[in-house]
Design a protein around this nucleic acid. Structure first.
Length: 796
DNA sequence: AGCACGCCGACT
DNA sequence: GTCGGCGTGCTC
């Protein structure tokens, strides 16, 4: 071997295996390789896609195979991010190759395809098969289109292959990702041209301005937004002393004192260029956004890059609108709302270093930036930062880890910080910055609690809407103002609430609400599996006034229509927004006061500011309080605080509840984060929930009921046996379950789960590795699939 | 995951 | 004796 001998590579393969593998580079490919590129490699007797993690020099080459093909002409990520990928894989217990696959823009992932052709034997047998048989149909398709991918499930193809009728080969899917054929268009003159030209020339226009220029603007706007030419968005506008409206993004405001202080701290650490985490706790309207903006600009001025994460797409788009005037085309936007091609384009701009700022949802955390200097996680408490498929990472927590690995500053911002983050701040792990004043000195709205236990509201017809709230809605209608009614419907499950004391039925061991299981008609704890029959006597106050309680936005909308026949009522929830563009249309109509009462779920609380809304009602605070989750109180506090923050000083915020004395509700109405936190911390410590413990949820799924049940119970027993052998630290781990999941028959699958609670993070991982190994043997032969969810959010 | 190997029971 | 079922283990 000479000096030019091929080096070896460390490669992660897109297959569910834990390890990475080493391969040799044939001479002919040595100029094309490098970290971050995809390759085609032999793996056992298959060919699979792999990702080059690093080049290795002078390593042992014995028994290594050669890579077959290099699939990319430029890297898709930098070597620098590889340790972060590996951390995600390890911490969230997901195969490294699949972590990378799921993080890269989809469409790149169709690495290999199977192509099929007939053997001699297959040719001979074809004419002897019965004319109507599926086998004959498949074989004749293959005869007609040799070396193509037939449109039948692979199992069918494989069974024909085992007859010796077919040759199956794997080939690289060379769908090209370069620019498409270049075509040109030019505008066609006319009224539509004039309309669009007006908008394009000013980059962005306020709807009311447009209306004065074009009489049929509503029609034209609807037309072009539907076609995707224009998009509607809202952002706050400010008036200058002359009374003219101006956009905040175009005229940077002077900073208020608390903003300046926050910024000085953060800039200091940006100068040092070291890792630090900042929890920016600022009430609604305290000017967090401007702090983010200045910090991002500062990092960019330093020659570094930034990532801004928002919990959802609409907020990401809003931030994009704010930054566009400042950074022009050095911004990339990245989220699941983009098409496959758009995502690939944005991704390549990032790797090539063509952007300074990436704005996006969860997945933008993996943006392939080389000189990362700052990560901002806005509304850090939002549960949508938890990925619930593939590698189940928590983007906010992972952001802190990426920042640590790349020596950058990370800002976690929220008006209602998660208990976990705030706890970290009190422990000195994060720096805490509190911004307690609202920049415009607007006082927070007064919040009124309505006790649904009162005699008046027990009357028929007042269960959903109290007579008081009905009165307020009526008044608001007369005044010509708008109302928002918020109902946090957690759809499928019914909550059992004592209508005398307001308590929901809880598990005696876990203190989480029990859920009703229909098939057996009993109440089950989804943490430990405790169950009881339906009983109608409250175990706190003893009254026999326990009733199933549960209704959704649809029912509320219906009732409102009956009560207020003259009102223009609309509903906005996930059912509605599934139809593309429908959500925006409703928000637009609401903002133009074509709707009087808007009924909706969480969706309506986020990011939108409607000046004409003077009544905000929370219909059933108890629905989220009785959610079977140890974070139920935290969620309730956050939701109510966020909703209340939307209210106007001169307006009203009304909260209907059976639990007017609950600490989360009381603290939320006073906008008092600290007393909520202290109370919640006490309970979490007492019951050993995070942040005083670490959780993992083992989820099982199988197609066969008996096999699934048998396998899960057997594994549960084995795990508990294993725990007994861990004499020393065994008592620091608790195994709860197995329990059947509430949607136990989702899409025909049988679903079960086991919850593991541990006092230490590394102890949990050590234990889970043992569990995983044991599970492989017991589950695989029974056709049961296990996914491990670390730091789970949805345990139902 | 997906594939081969190998170990048992039911057949020509 | 062997065909084929499924449990087990490995993939640079």
């Amino acid at each position: 071997l000479n000096d030019e001998a091929p080096r070896s590579l460390r490669i992660a393969v897109a297959v569910p295996v834990k390890d990475t593998y080493h391969y040799l580079v044939p001479e002919s490919l040595s100029s094309k390789i490098g970290p971050g590129r995809r390759v085609l490699v032999p793996f056992k007797n298959r060919r699979v896609t792999g990702y080059i993690l690093e080049k290795l020099e002078g390593e042992n080459r014995e028994g290594l195979k050669e890579i077959l093909e290099v699939l990319d002409s430029e890297p898709l990520f930098h070597e620098k991010i590889v340790p972060f990928f590996e951390w995600i894989a390890e911490y969230y217990m997901h195969p490294i190759g699949q972590v990378i696959q799921s993080v890269l823009p989809g469409g790149l992932n169709k690495g290999t395809i199977r192509i099929v052709s007939l053997t001699k034997k297959g040719m001979d047998i074809l004419n002897r098969l019965p004319p109507d048989s599926e086998e004959r149909e498949i074989l004749s398709w293959i005869k007609k289109y040799p070396r193509k991918g037939p449109p039948w499930p692979y199992e069918k193809i494989r069974s024909l292959h085992s007859n010796g009728w077919l040759i199956i080969e794997e080939a690289a899917d060379k769908r090209h990702i370069g620019p498409l054929l270049q075509k040109f268009v030019r505008p066609k003159s006319g009224i539509q041209f004039k309309f669009l030209e007006t908008i394009f020339q000013s980059d962005s226009m306020m709807l009311s301005d447009l209306k004065t220029k074009f009489s049929n603007s509503s029609y034209l706007i609807r037309k072009w937004t539907q076609k995707g030419i224009l998009e509607l968005y809202s952002m706050p506008v400010y008036k200058n002393p002359a009374g003219e409206i101006m956009f905040r993004s175009q005229v940077p405001l002077k900073l208020y004192k608390q903003q300046k202080v926050a910024l000085t701290y953060i800039q200091d650490y940006l100068d040092k260029g070291t890792f630090s985490t900042w929890l920016l706790h600022g009430v609604t309207g305290s000017g967090k956004t401007e702090v983010y903006n200045r910090a991002i600009e500062y990092a960019i001025k330093q020659g570094r890059q930034a990532i801004f994460l928002a919990p959802e797409i609409s907020l990401a788009s809003y931030m994009e609108a704010l930054f566009k005037p400042r950074l022009g085309n050095r911004i990339a936007i990245y989220h699941s709302g983009l098409s496959q091609r758009e995502r690939i384009d944005q991704w390549l701009r990032m790797v090539r270093g063509d952007v300074d700022l990436v704005i996006g949802a969860r997945s933008a955390l993996f943006a392939p930036l080389f000189k990362l200097g700052l990560i901002v996680v806005d509304e850090e408490y939002d549960p949508s930062y938890k990925q619930e498929q593939g590698p189940r990472y928590q983007a906010r927590d992972a952001a802190v880890m990426r920042a640590k690995m790349e020596n950058t500053v990370v800002i976690l911002g929220s008006g209602t910080p998660s208990v976990q983050s705030f706890h970290n701040a009190t422990q000195g792990k994060y720096h805490l910055i509190t911004m307690s004043d609202r920049v415009d000195q607007r006082p927070l709205p007064i919040v009124e609690i309505i006790d649904m236990k009162s005699e008046d509201n027990k009357e028929i017809g007042n269960e959903m809407l109290s007579s008081k709230l009905k009165g307020y809605i009526d008044q608001n209608m007369d005044a010509g103002d708008q109302s928002i009614l918020f109902l946090n419907r957690r759809g499928f499950h019914r909550v059992f609430i004592c209508r005398s004391c307001g308590q929901s039925i809880r598990c005696p061991n876990c203190e989480v609400a029990l859920t009703h299981h229909f098939p057996e008609d009993r109440l089950i704890c989804h943490y430990c599996g405790y169950y009881s029959g339906i009983h109608f006597k409250c175990n706190r106050c003893g009254h026999e006034d326990l009733r199933a309680y549960g209704f959704g936005t649809e029912k509320l909308e219906h009732e409102l229509k009956v009560l207020f026949p003259k009102a223009r009522i609309a509903r906005l929830d996930t059912d509605i927004s599934r139809k593309k563009g429908q959500a925006i249309r409703i928000l637009k109509r609401f903002s133009e006061h074509e709707i009087d009462i808007l009924v909706g779920t969480q969706m309506i609380t986020k990011g939108y500011d409607f000046p004409m809304v003077t009544l905000v009602g929370v219909i059933a605070a108890d629905l989220s309080l009785a959610f079977p989750d140890f974070r139920a109180a935290e969620r309730t506090f956050q939701i109510i605080t966020q909703v209340a923050g939307r209210g106007k000083k001169e307006g009203k915020v009304i909260i209907q509840t059976f639990n007017p004395d609950h600490y989360a509700i009381k603290a939320a109405t006073r906008h008092d984060y600290f007393s909520f936190f202290e109370e919640e911390k006490k309970l979490r410590r007492q019951l050993v929930y995070p942040p005083f413990s670490y959780l993992a949820c083992l989820r099982f799924q199988g197609n066969n009921k008996d096999k699934t049940v048998e396998a899960v119970h057997r594994l549960g027993k084995e795990i508990k046996e294993m725990l007994k052998k861990w004499s020393k630290r065994g008592n620091e781990i608790q195994v709860l379950g197995p329990v059947e999941a509430p949607l136990s028959r989702l899409r025909g699958k049988f679903r079960w789960q086991i919850l593991i609670k541990s006092k230490g993070a590394s102890l949990l991982h050590l234990f889970l590795e043992g569990v995983e190994e044991m599970a492989r043997k017991i589950l695989k032969s029974r056709g049961v699939h296990l996914t491990i969810d670390i730091d789970p959010y949805q345990m139902i």
